[in-house]
Simulated assay, not measured.
Amino acid sequence: MTWLDGLRFDPIAPLLSSGHPAVRSWAVRELASRPAGLPPARAQTPDEALWDLPIPRRIVRRQAANGSWTYPGRRPRASTDYDLLETYRQVGFLVDMFGFTHRNPALAAAAGYVLAHQSAQGDLRGIYGNQVSPNYTAALIGLLSKAGYGEDPRVERAFDWLEASRQHDGGWALPLRTRGRKLDALDEPQTIAGDPAQPFSHLITGIVLRAYAAHPGRRESTSAQKAAELLAARFFEPDAYPDKGRAADWTEFSFPFWMTDLVSALDAISIIRPGFRSDKTDTARDWLAAHQEPSGLFTGHLLRDRFHDLQLWFSLAVCRVFARMPS
C-alpha cells in the first residue's frame, strides 16, 4: 500500500504533464522517481537549470545593487521596512519554486541584505519596525536555511533567539499581542516585551516551525517536537489572537507558504515529526483528499499569486504532505 492508495485520482501525472518546467522538475525528483511508499524529502541537489527560466531571470533583473527588491505598492506605515518585506517575498519565489541556493550570486546578495537586519539580540528587525517578530525572523531564516545558510553563525544566532522567545506553553506568539496591543503599536520606537505566560499563537508557531523544518539540526530539537504537536492540536480552530481569528483561515492557501494553513502546517509537522498522526491531522488529510479534482490536482481557497499557476504548486505541496503522512 502506498500513499497514492488513499486518493481517488492520480495526482502525479498532471504535475508531470503540466508543461511547467519547475513543477515537473520537483515532481520528478521528489515523487515520481522515488520507490513506491518511500516518503519524499526536499531534493538535496538543486536543478540549477531552473535558475535560468524566464520567471527567475525576470525576478533577478529587478534586484537592487544592495541585494534587496523594491516594494511596488503604497507605504502607509513609516516604521515598516517595505523593501525587506518585498525581499522576503521574492526570495520565497526563488528558493521554494526555483531551488536557488547560496551558490547563486543573486541569492547570496539577498542573504547579505536580509542578515544585515539582525539585531544585537539575534532577531531580524524592520518589517515590524522596532518590534520583534518571531514570524518574519523565522520565515527569513527558514528560506536561508533551505538555501544552504543553516550553519551561518548569524542564522544560528537567530535560531537561538527563537529558542529563548518561546511562550511557557512551548509555542510562539507576537509579543505585542500578548500584551493586548493592536498593530498601531508597530509605530512605537520602544520594543514591547511580550508576556510569555500567555497562550501561543498558531499563526506565529506555524511559521516558526517552517524554519525548524528547514534546518536538519534544529528540526530534531525538543522544542520543535513539542511545538509540532501543539500546532496539530489547533487545526480548524480560531487563533488565540485576532490576526487569524477565523477557523476558515486554515483553508486559505498560498505558495510559497505565507501564513499558517493546513498544508503549510502539515508540511512542517511531517518533517519534524515523521509518522506523527492525530485525529486532527487525519481530519486535515481527509479534507484535502475531498478537495481533489478528477484532473488529479487539488483545490481550495487559493490566494492568487502573480504567476497564476498556484494550483500546480499547491497540488505539489499537498502531494509532499500525503507522501510523508500516508494513511
Rank of each mutant, 00 (worst) to 15 (best):
R89Q: 09
A108W: 08
G122Y: 03
E163C: 07
F236D: 08
N104D: 15
R181P: 01
G194L: 07
T299C: 06
D152E: 04
H215M: 07
E229L: 09
V321T: 11
T283E: 13
D160R: 08
F255E: 12
G112Q: 09
L16C: 04
W51P: 02
A268K: 13
T101S: 11
A323G: 13
D286A: 10
A265C: 09
F253P: 00
T283V: 08
T281H: 02
D279R: 10
H168W: 05
F100S: 02
F276E: 08
S165E: 15
V132H: 06
K146D: 10
L115A: 01
D239C: 05
L38T: 13
R277E: 05
Y136M: 15
L124Y: 08
A211F: 04
R304C: 02
V91S: 07
G92S: 06
R42F: 11
L143Y: 14
G129V: 10
L15K: 09
V263T: 12
L7F: 04
A240K: 08
R154K: 13
A22S: 14
K226E: 14
T299G: 14
F98R: 00
A228S: 15
T191G: 03
L303F: 03
H102E: 14
R125L: 01
A13F: 02
A213M: 13
R74N: 14
R62W: 06
A214I: 14
E237L: 12
Y149L: 11
S254D: 07
A227C: 12
L176D: 07
I204L: 14
A13Y: 04
L230Q: 00
S201V: 06
A36G: 05
W287L: 07
D195I: 05
S145V: 05
S165Y: 14
G73E: 13
S278D: 13
Y71V: 15
L288D: 09
P39S: 09
A49S: 06
A211M: 00
A108D: 12
T137P: 03
E151D: 11
L183R: 04
R306N: 13
P40I: 03
H20Q: 05
W26S: 08
R103H: 06
Y241R: 00
M259Q: 15
L115M: 12
L302Y: 01
A27D: 02
A41I: 07
L50Q: 13
Q63H: 00
D267T: 05
R219A: 09
A290C: 13
A32C: 09
H308M: 10
F314H: 07
G67P: 11
F298T: 09
R306P: 10
L84P: 11
Q118W: 06
V155P: 02
E86P: 06
L107G: 08
T80C: 06
N130L: 12
A290W: 09
S315N: 01
S254P: 05
S119V: 11
A32Y: 12
A78C: 03
